[in-house]
Amino acid sequence: MADPLDDDPVHEAIEALKAAGRSVLPAEDAPGLYRVDHGPEMTGGDILAMAIQMGLLDGREEDGRDG
């Protein structure tokens, strides 16, 4: 059975950031928010944008658009 997180762009972004040496952890007492390198709380969209800006993910594929 496939893991539903395999198709989750936020999960992919988190894994890409971790592979690049960044620390990504869920924010304490804030479901759905994360902290990168112990910084401020970020949404999944913020995490995705960060990974795209760093060149770790291709934004066109991640947002579902082909071009």
Rank of each mutant, 00 (worst) to 15 (best):
D46M: 14
T43G: 13
A51T: 00
Q53E: 15
Q53G: 14
G39D: 12
M1N: 12
Y34L: 07
D6S: 13
V36A: 08
A13E: 01
R60E: 05
A51V: 01
L56M: 11
Y34T: 03
P26Q: 08
R60V: 10
D63L: 10
L5G: 05
L57H: 00
M54L: 15
A30R: 14
A30M: 14
D37K: 10
D7Q: 05
D7A: 09
G39P: 04
M54Q: 15
T43R: 01
A51I: 03
I47S: 01
H11T: 06
D6Q: 07
M1D: 12
M42V: 09
D29N: 09
I52M: 05
L25G: 00
E28Q: 08
L56V: 14
G21M: 01
H11M: 08
D58M: 07
G32F: 08
D29P: 03
L56H: 05
A49H: 07
M42F: 00
A49N: 15
G45S: 13
M54R: 12
G59F: 06
M54W: 11
A27G: 11
P31V: 13
M54G: 05
P9W: 02
R22T: 06
D29G: 02
D66K: 02
I47L: 14
E28G: 04
G55Q: 08
D63I: 11
R60G: 04
G32D: 02
M1A: 15
A20Q: 13
I52N: 02
L5C: 06
A51Y: 00
R60C: 05
E62F: 02
L56C: 09
P9D: 02
G67Y: 13
P4E: 04
V10E: 05
L25I: 13
G59L: 06
A30H: 09
A20E: 14
